Amino acid sequence: MAKKKQQEVKMGAPEWMTTFSDMMTLLLCFFVLLFAFSSIDVQKFEAVMQSVQGSLGVLKGGKTIETSPYVNDALDDDKTTKQLEELEDFKKLKEELDAYLEREGMKDQILVDLNAKGLLLRFKDNVLFDSGRAELKPIAIQTLSFLSDLLKKEEFVEKYIRVEGHTDSDPILYSKKFPTNWELSVTRSSNVVRYFIEGAELDPGRLSASGYSEYHPVAPNDTLENKGKNRRVDIVILRSDFSKSYY
């Protein structure tokens, strides 16, 4: 009886494993190269991660779990970049204005504040106008001229500007020109806008003027100090997102 020929058993991993390993190595190299060439938007990445925490779907009404605009606006790369660039531009503008006011000794008279709407310049009490009057003071024109030069820069040339006049609650006495605080607040803001257009040659389409009389106070009208805070002119350089709601 013939002996059966013993089958030869090969040692080591199967041959297909070598090919598979080579393929996986190449794929790994490919993704490493992709990662190396890419850039990560940290703010966008965090918004995406928050949106998927606890769920991989979306809520009713088409909203994600995280209400960040970076998520709900379809994570628009260009928009995110523009918002960050705009914020940096506003910070630089604030620094320039702060430095100017420091040099001129006006830090206590004009507030410069970066907020959600844009950059706020608050001219306190009688910085721009004498009491009960609406003619710009010479020192006011100097400051507005410096501001106008900054607003002509390329990064701000398309920004919209709101000028708002405010008064305290004391009624105007013996004035035919300004029967009430309404007329005074509107005329003051209009004269600032008029200077920007005629004196500084800013685009009129960027500007708007409004007067609020005593009805938008920043402090109670119960002391002389608080009334001084409420007598003010606010100039707001609007962020792009807020310009749409005003114009």
Rank of each mutant, 00 (worst) to 15 (best):
Y160L: 03
T81I: 08
V193W: 06
L121Q: 10
K152N: 12
N72Q: 05
F156N: 06
S145C: 00
A74M: 02
F146D: 05
T80K: 04
D203S: 12
E198Q: 14
T223G: 08
T19N: 12
V9H: 13
L151T: 08
V112N: 10
L84H: 08
S208W: 07
P179K: 13
I197M: 10
T180V: 05
G12H: 13
D22G: 12
L120Y: 09
M11T: 12
D170L: 08
K82L: 09
K117M: 13
S210T: 10
A74G: 01
F196H: 03
I110Q: 03
D222Q: 11
K3Q: 09
S240T: 11
A116D: 15
L173A: 07
I141C: 01
E102T: 13
D73R: 04
E135Y: 02
F45S: 13
A36G: 04
G105H: 07
D78Y: 04
L224P: 03
L136G: 03
M1S: 09
L84P: 01
R122T: 08
P138F: 01
G12P: 00
N72D: 07
F30V: 04
K44W: 00
L34H: 05
F123P: 07
L56G: 09
D41N: 15
M106W: 09
L119F: 09
I161R: 05
V218L: 11
T167Q: 14
I139S: 09
D73Y: 02
F20T: 11
E201Y: 06
G205A: 08
S21C: 01
K152Q: 12
Y195N: 09
V157I: 06
L87D: 15
V58F: 05
S190W: 06
S148Q: 07
E86Q: 14
V157Q: 12
L101M: 10
L101D: 14
